[in-house]
């Protein structure tokens, strides 16, 4: 484990925490895509199914439990506690368009035909595209919450750290997982695309206009 990975994990955690805090403090989930959070919940559930069977370290086990808990709390906040403020109309991206292709890719591109491995591969692909409903929602409403900007910035940093971590591992140990690196790059491109697309809105915000 290197510092890049740990920094990435904490930044990821920070992003999820900012989102959950925003939901709990404002009791409002306007502008936040419930579908992206639901996809994240699926990602963590499928990836960490080996939580009880495979033990790596105390750090990993605790972080997995925290990740799953925060994501489930976020999903519950959006779909149960504060569902009255959930913008169903604008969160219109069809999740099955992401889940089904990822399931097919997971099944066919898995390196080892083993249940946990297929689930892992599926989760890696789904994680790469899980931000799509959020990006779609922002582009549909033409408004972007500052929380969403912070959240996506954290996720982008997290992915960047992990990519550097994989590069470091490759240089040091001489191997890398193609699947992780390829999907990691795709994921990072989605985040960059979000910022590139919303640059005009973000600039406006900096000038103090149209802050949502």
């Amino acid at each position: 484990m290197d510092i890049l990975q740990i920094f990435g994990d904490y930044i990821h955690l920070l992003g999820m925490f900012i989102l959950l805090m925003k939901l709990c403090l404002t009791r409002n989930c306007g502008g936040i895509s419930g579908k992206t959070q639901l996809l994240n919940a699926i990602v963590f559930t499928t990836r960490y199914m080996n939580l009880t069977t495979t033990y790596a370290s105390l750090y990993i086990t605790i972080m997995k439990i925290i990740y799953i808990s925060i994501t489930y709390c976020t999903v519950l906040s959006i779909f149960l506690f504060f569902r009255k403020t959930y913008d169903r109309e604008r969160d219109a991206f069809r999740m099955e368009l992401l889940i089904l292709p990822c399931a097919v890719l997971g099944l066919f591109l898995t390196e080892y035909l083993d249940t946990m491995e297929v689930f892992w591969t599926f989760s890696v692909f789904l994680e790469a595209v899980s931000i799509v409903p959020q990006v779609y929602m922002v582009s549909k409403s033409k408004q972007v919450e500052s929380t969403v900007v912070s959240y996506i910035s954290c996720l982008g940093l997290y992915r960047g750290c992990y990519l550097m971590h994989w590069l470091y591992t490759y240089l040091k140990l001489g191997f890398f997982r193609k699947m992780s690196v390829a999907t990691g790059i795709i994921q990072l491109i989605f985040y960059c695309d979000f910022f590139a697309r919303n640059l005009p809105i973000l600039k406006q915000k900096n000038n103090g206009k149209g802050f949502e």
């Binding site: 484990m1 994990d9 790596a56 370290s57 990993i60 080892y112 892992w120 992990y162 140990l173 191997f175």
Partner: peptide, 10 residues
């Protein structure tokens, strides 16, 4: 091996 290495990641 690579699989066990992957368990060290989140």
């Amino acid at each position: 091996n690579i699989i066990s290495k992957r368990h060290d990641e989140l």
